[in-house]
Design a protein around this nucleic acid. Structure first.
Length: 443
DNA sequence: TCTGGGGTCCTAGGACCC
DNA sequence: TCTGGGGTCCTAGGACCC
């Protein structure tokens, strides 16, 4: 089999070689289409949780003018007019396909050269590939990923992460000429690419900085590249800005990172399916989110010392920043770090008492675990009383049952059974790859 | 009563990412 | 009527120490 693994004593090792970003095209839509071949070349969108807004669009949907991250209800007329196929998000499916794509990349370039950056993106360290082979190697990798997984990807290659993101974006914008692969390997190509990139499209420049830059007549990535690091330190968030300028100039300042195995914060937050006014419902929701968060915690063999809870009252409409509406939150430090669900639920529910105000209408709530440390109560720990070990074993059992059967067959009483607050998910596709009873059927 | 120059640790909040 | 969910890193400022 063809691969791109580093050879022993690669002459290119350590020479500050090239980095790539591999990005799945319209990832969630592509996942849905994989099991719906009839939707090839048809417009498709995927909605966020609660069917709130649009988080993935196929090219055809983009062409129709469906906006990214726009609220579903606003796009609905357009969607219905053109018969856009719409899915609720199905994270079991996306997670599984993501894993397949990343495994393929690990097989191709060696797992030490892959840094998974998000569900649909990975950085690759390509220091071992000679510069005159970068294009062909990238194109072959792209083809192999597509053959093995059915997911189409775009690849941007450049001396730094920021520049590889620039390349990746341009490759997608000009699919026909680039075939979704762009390599920026000399000054001319880099400058040309930077001139074609607006400041707001740079990785690391968000709404705030973009507004500021535009006011200063800094319009393109090429303009920004000319600014001094001292200036960036003053105006673009300190060392973050300095790194950005360096990266634009081809000087690596954001290194490849070891795979982030353990999260430093774990959150489970949800909008309610409908507005909630009763403290009982909020407590049930918080108990349920705490169970979810605790599962995530145990999956990485961690325990948390701090648990925080927040609830969000429903706002007056017509506010501009609906996302960052006022929320009320609080947290406590636990006497001992734990991953045991009921030890977390108890304080979480108590925090609700401190936050809830009778008469308010709430639309969202969340649980956050932080101060995360390795779990010392993992089964068989000699230094803990036996009862503690038994609890951890019980947790393992619950996790296993919930994973292999249906979600939440086993749950804690505090989570409630009616769940008036549960989110809407009306259009979810089947979990083809992770649930036996939802396997793809061939007619 | 008045008052320097460090240093550390913690928290809140701002910015960004997908 | 209806606008995800889950993360990271950095900085400023306060509390406290000598």
């Amino acid at each position: 089999m063809k691969n791109f693994l580093p050879k022993q004593n690669s002459p290119f090792r350590g020479l500050g070689g090239m980095k790539a970003i591999v990005d799945c095209n319209s990832f969630y839509c592509s996942c849905e289409r994989l099991f719906r071949p009839d939707l090839a070349n048809k417009p498709v969108v995927v909605l966020s949780n609660n069917d709130g807004c649009i988080i993935s669009r196929s090219d055809e949907a983009k062409k129709l003018g469906v906006q990214m991250a726009g609220p579903y209800f606003k796009a609905k007329p357009l969607i219905e007019k053109y018969g856009v196929t719409t899915f609720s998000s199905n994270y079991h499916l996306y997670g599984d396909l993501s894993w397949r794509v990343m495994e393929t990349l690990r097989t191709l370039v060696g797992k030490e050269n892959v840094e998974v950056y998000s569900v649909d993106e990975s950085f690759l360290d390509l220091h071992h590939i000679p510069s005159n082979e970068l294009i062909t190697a990238s194109k072959e990798m792209k083809n192999i990923v597509e053959q093995w997984t059915g997911i189409k990807v775009s690849i941007g290659v450049a001396p730094t992460k920021v520049l590889s993101k620039v390349a990746n974006r341009l490759s997608k914008k000009n699919k026909i000429e680039t075939d979704c692969v762009m390599v920026l390997d000399d000054k001319e190509k880099i400058n040309d690419a930077l001139r074609r990139t607006s400041v707001e499209d740079i990785w690391g420049v968000g709404f705030q900085y973009a507004t500021k830059l535009r006011q200063l007549r800094i319009n393109t990535a090429f303009d920004l590249k000319q600014m001094s690091t001292a200036w960036a330190h003053r105006h673009l968030g300190g060392v973050v800005g300095v790194r950005l300028i360096k990266e634009l100039n081809g000087e690596p300042a954001i290194e490849m990172e070891d795979e982030l195995i353990n999260k430093k914060m774990i959150a489970t937050t949800r909008m309610f399916g409908q507005p909630v006014t009763k403290i009982k419902d909020i407590k049930e929701a918080i108990a349920t989110y705490t169970s979810r968060a605790a599962e995530k915690l145990r999956r990485q063999n961690s325990a948390a010392k701090t648990i925080g809870v927040f609830i969000v009252p429903k706002q007056e409409s017509h506010t501009t920043h609906f996302r960052h509406g006022p929320s009320v939150g609080t947290y406590i430090h636990l006497p001992v770090a734990t991953s045991i669900t009921n030890e977390l639920i108890k304080p979480a529910v108590q925090l609700v008492d401190r936050l809830f105000e009778e008469g308010n209408i709430y639309k969202k709530a969340g649980v956050m675990l932080s101060n995360i440390v390795p779990d010392t109560s993992i089964q068989g720990n000699l230094f803990l009383p036996e009862i503690k070990n038994n609890q951890r074993l019980l947790m393992n059992m619950i996790d296993n049952v919930n994973f292999s059967m249906r979600d939440d067959v086993l749950k804690f009483a505090a989570s409630g059974t009616t769940r008036d607050w549960k989110m809407r998910q009306e259009l979810r596709s089947k979990r083809y790859t992770t649930r036996w009873n939802e396997l793809f059927e061939i007619k």
